[in-house]
Write a protein that binds this DNA or RNA. Structure first.
Lengths: 199, 199
DNA sequence: GACTATAGTGAACTATCATTCCGCTTGTCA
DNA sequence: TGACAAGCGGAATGATAGTTCACTATAGTC
């Protein structure tokens, strides 16, 4: 929980702040799109900015992708917190809801999918603290479902990113007859305890 | 089922036949290894052959990878045929056995994993007939398990490559605390009908 | 309005790899 | 054992894409 930014450092100039946001938005949009290979020049052009400006804000491509991943993990964490706050449904339903939301979220973010699939240590490093938070929340959610007897004994919090990685691959393969919702459903069935009632 | 090779074409010269095999072996070994980016030069060097020789045998890198994928699918198909021939176990157990064998097989073949994950139409095209065969066998195996009431209604043969793709991603991510056997187990639990007895 | 630190620009540079090309080598067969 | 088609080698080529840098522009401040 250490704040790495020095408090004495000046705030960004107005135009720089604006451009930084545009770059991130452009990158997000392009990574959400069809083409698998998003290039720095593309991002710069789409943000209506020179490549040099992109490099002023991010030391390299991985850092930019890392920021996208970081922001995505913030969304993931919101989903997990929302599930933890849910009093109306059971512990398992809350977990399922969070997983569905996360998978839907990553479905529109090729950068994060890429990070999941490639191991991408460098990329993940930028999001280290959000990922740490993610695992804490996931542990909490999984623990609750276990205590309620609604989860297979051998399912752990660390299985969540693994399973998400698998579904990222299915999404990214972009095969018309591969239904990643269905893939997720199979897994959600699989993580219930043996002999669970039909759903 | 069309044979594209012309029967009148000459057999390869002895040295060429030997080199072709060495290239394929070298490629297989390198793709089985650690490094994610296998280059044509690497393959040539590892096969103790010039790059030009690699290109004499395969028009491009995708064709070489395609051959690896084709051979891997031959192994997959053997696994499926073996499962279909199995009289001693139930239909579900046979399916499970085949899936386990296939996943174990793909675990040592980054080229095929890559093909699964990237969609890789060009690569898969080389293995079209083996894949067709694969789907036929998979259909047969899945149909049998369905008829025995041992499989979720919504699980189809086309889910098999999808699920394998997901596990390929888990394997390829190469994270120490991600256990792809466990990933497969979760899915195998998930494809049983609701309310199945504990296993 | 002038000053200057901060920011922006994009052509040029660089690294990485797949792929080609052509002179040389070697199986094969009469 | 010659002839020569088939095969080989690997430096050179080309394409792609990330990154740099010398220069220009401008927001913030007095």
């Amino acid at each position: 929980m250490t704040v790495t930014s020095i408090d004495t450092e000046r705030p960004l100039r107005a135009d720089a702040r604006r451009n930084r946001a545009r770059i991130i938005d452009a990158a997000r949009e392009l990574f959400a799109g069809e083409q698998p290979n998003v290039q720095m020049d593309d991002i710069a052009r789409h943000a209506r900015v020179g490549v040099g400006t992109v490099y002023r804000h991010f030391p390299d491509k991985e850092a930019l992708m890392g920021e996208l991943v970081r922001q995505r993990f913030e969304l993931f964490n919101e989903n997990l917190r929302h599930a933890l706050a849910d009093e109306h449904h059971g512990a398992f339903a809350a977990l399922v809801g969070a997983l569905r939301a996360n998978v839907a979220s990553v479905a529109e973010d090729a950068a994060t999918r890429f990070a999941f699939m490639s191991g991408g240590e460098r990329v993940f490093a930028h999001a280290a603290s959000e990922m740490e938070q993610f695992m804490l929340l996931a542990n909490e959610l999984v623990g609750r479902a276990h205590r309620a007897g609604q989860l297979r004994n051998d399912f752990q919090a660390s299985d969540i990113p693994m399973v998400m990685c698998g579904i990222c691959a299915t999404i990214g393969a972009n095969k018309p007859d591969w239904d990643w919702q269905h893939h997720l459903d199979l897994i959600l069935h699989g993580i219930q305890p043996p002999g669970s009632p039909p759903d």
